[in-house]
Design a protein around this nucleic acid. Structure first.
Length: 359
DNA sequence: CACGCGTGGCG
DNA sequence: TCGCCAAGCGT
């Protein structure tokens, strides 16, 4: 995609002008902007909101005011200052990179994208942020905010996990990046994403570049950015006969491997008709046949809908023979459990106990 | 390309 | 109440 140079100029003019009026200029890391200070803020802000970061940032800077102090610092102190912030590998990378900057670069941060990206924990966007915000080097950034703004302005199809989408977004921000005033420009891009072009209910009336926004102009704002399709968990429905006789309930041990391996559970059938056929084969004298409310049980990889059917029987001619075959047991509801059962089975057993059946 | 990484805020 | 998500990166 090629962006017309007049459009580009107008776009960046609008963005920079907006920054003068509405941009955030008094966050702690926006004063005394050095690569070190911007770097620490960028790492802390990865996947963490501004309001959360501020306190951590100030404590960190009090303890480690420059890269030499951090490099010389104790790793326990670094991690302690990170406690509660999460992503502790980021703190370890930060410490490691500080040592590299001091040992290999004499305490001066590199000024090229490539060298910056070679430091642990610094990817392309963070490298661009440090170099542009601290040193006014005209490089684009592409964090979550900028991605959202770009996806809407240019109606980028697809979701961020796709390589072609990221390529397209980088291509767009490269073309739009102005050669001067990069600091306010990049700062404003993030601010607009964070405060105007929000995930839900974007305030397009307040946006300085809404006239360039294809999604807005086509009234399709809510469609962008496209969400990654959630993997739909397969749904399986099973009918479970809960066969009760004289205060006992029939359970079967499951195969040793697979779901609920070795645990005791109820028989499972694909439909209610199969349960009836099963019952016919057994020739039980059925006293009660009652469908209980469906239960949903979520596994990692699928959802199981359980349709329990309470079957109270009074014939006991067959009971012992059933129990003798197929790993079946008759569990006395008054006894303590002495074997493993899956959670939905435990819930059903508790339900049945409360019914106080045919004692 | 998918996943793990941590926590707090929000609708 | 709880699933979703927020200034990404490394594997």
């Amino acid at each position: 995609m090629h962006i017309d140079s007049a459009v580009k100029d107008h776009f960046s003019d609008k963005i920079i002008q907006w920054h003068g009026q509405f941009g955030r200029k008094h966050l702690p890391w926006q004063h005394n902007r050095t690569p070190y200070r911007v770097w620490v803020s960028e790492i802390m802000l990865q996947q963490t909101q501004v309001a959360t970061v501020i306190g951590y940032y100030q404590r960190f800077m009090d303890k480690f005011p420059n890269v030499q102090a951090l490099a010389a610092g104790d790793s326990d102190d670094v991690l302690h200052l990170w406690t509660g912030l999460g992503y502790y590998a980021s703190a370890r990378n930060l410490h490691k990179a500080a040592k590299t900057v001091v040992d290999k670069f004499g305490g001066e941060f590199p000024t090229t994208l490539e060298a910056m990206e070679a430091l642990p924990g610094i990817g392309r966007s963070t490298a661009g942020a440090i170099l542009s915000l601290a040193l006014d080097i005209p490089l684009p950034i592409l964090d979550g905010n900028v991605k959202r703004v770009m996806a809407r302005c240019f109606m980028v199809e697809g979701w961020y996990g796709q390589a072609k989408v990221m390529q397209q977004l980088w291509d767009i921000v490269e073309q739009l990046t102005p050669t001067k005033d990069i600091q306010p420009y990049n700062q404003a891009m993030m601010d607009i994403g964070a405060t105007i072009c929000t995930r839900s209910k974007p305030d397009c009336d307040a946006c300085p570049v809404s006239e360039h926004c294809q999604a807005h102009n086509n009234d399709r704002i809510t469609e962008f950015p496209h969400k990654k399709p959630k993997k739909v968990k397969p749904v399986r429905t099973e009918y479970w006969p809960l066969v009760v006789h004289q205060g006992q309930i029939m359970l079967n041990q499951r195969p040793p491997s697979g779901i609920w391996g070795g645990l005791y559970s109820f028989n499972a059938f694909d439909d209610e008709r199969a349960v009836k056929e099963y019952n016919d084969v057994k020739s039980w004298d059925v006293k009660t046949w009652q469908e209980l409310p469906e239960m949903k049980h979520i596994f990692t990889h699928f959802q199981l809908n359980i349709r329990p059917i309470l079957i109270v029987i009074q014939d006991h001619q067959y009971l012992m023979s059933i129990a003798d075959s197929n790993q079946s047991i008759w569990y006395k509801l008054d006894d303590e459990l002495s074997f493993g059962v899956p959670t939905p089975v435990l819930k059903l057993i508790k339900q049945i106990k409360q019914l106080k059946l045919d004692k």
